[in-house]
């Protein structure tokens, strides 16, 4: 009883700022401007299929790149001496302490046609390379901003793997490669799963990155929703419906992700 009272503040918070808004979104999604019940908001969504597809594709690519960069980084990091680990973790997190917008603006000027990269390439007689306002620029922005969210959970799982498990696998005849594939990798999957979740979810709904680095040419779900609430297209009902659909799709995605993960745990060897 006493323990439970400690949770009261959070339960109230949860009710006011999590449950209530979700209910509001559901209500908005199923009503029209005039206030009556309608499913029109959902049927109108057909023309945004391409936006959905693009958002999910870019988010998946970003997540995959984050994994490809973040896993080796986390793996190497976890094997370093404690002192170097601390310094490298600091460096990894340092950009996160800088304002998000500022970081993304910085990438704008790096990727610009007259930006750092282009000029550098030009110096060697290459280019000009057009990166800004392309999907590639959006992916670069996402990877840069979300990489720590992949590397940190993977690192924290790998660093906790008992060293003697690795030695046991070596002892039983495992070459470095098989030890990694049969012991380290399966044991680090929980970290990979939470990393994927933590990168994919914000990536699929971002709008600042796509606006600044994609030049507004590549409309993503985040942009679409923002337009319905703040933009000229003002239609909170449609916005709510899109947000709701996105939420459901993400939930389904995560569900399969976790299912796959559970199976993977054991499937690796059999």
């Amino acid at each position: 009883m006493k323990r439970r009272t400690l949770a009261v503040p959070y339960v109230l918070w949860l009710a006011a700022f999590v449950v209530a808004p979700v209910i509001l979104i559901v209500i908005y999604a199923f009503t029209s401007r005039s206030g009556g019940f309608t499913t029109e908001n959902f049927s109108a969504m057909g023309k945004y299929v391409s936006v959905f597809a693009r958002s999910f594709a870019l988010a998946l690519i970003s997540t995959a790149v984050c994994l490809a960069l973040g896993y080796p980084l986390a793996y190497v990091l976890a094997r370093e001496p404690a002192r170097r680990q601390r310094i490298m973790l600091m460096l990894l997190m340092l950009p996160m302490w800088m304002n998000f917008l500022l970081r993304t603006y910085a990438w704008m000027s790096i990727l610009e046609n007259t930006g750092l990269i282009s000029r550098l390439l030009g110096f060697f007689g290459l280019g000009p390379l057009r990166v800004i306002n392309t999907p590639a620029a959006v992916v670069i922005g996402m990877v840069y901003n979300f990489l720590p969210f992949m590397a940190l959970p993977v690192y924290s799982v790998i660093v906790k793997i008992d060293r003697s498990l690795i030695e046991a696998a070596q002892d039983l005849g495992g070459s470095p490669r098989t030890v990694f594939l049969r012991v380290t990798l399966p044991l680090s999957l929980p970290g990979v799963l939470s990393g994927v979740t933590m990168v994919f979810v914000p990536a699929v709904s971002t709008f600042v990155i796509s606006q600044l680095l994609g030049g507004g040419k590549y409309l993503l779900l985040g942009d679409l929703i923002e337009m319905q609430f703040l933009g000229q297209a003002y239609n909170p009902h449609l916005g709510s419906a899109i947000a709701l659909v996105m939420m459901v799709v993400v939930m389904i995605f995560m569900f399969f992700m976790n299912k796959f993960g559970e199976g993977e745990d054991k499937a690796v060897i059999i």
Binding site: A168, D171, R182, D265, K266, V268
Partner: peptide
């Protein structure tokens, strides 16, 4: 082969697979 101090069993594998681990290599 070694029997480690805290056994160092592979927690992601069952008993059979733990014992089979070395044989599979």
């Amino acid at each position: 082969n070694t029997v480690f101090q805290k056994y160092a069993l592979f927690t992601h594998l069952d008993v059979f697979e733990n014992v089979a681990f070395g044989l599979r290599m």
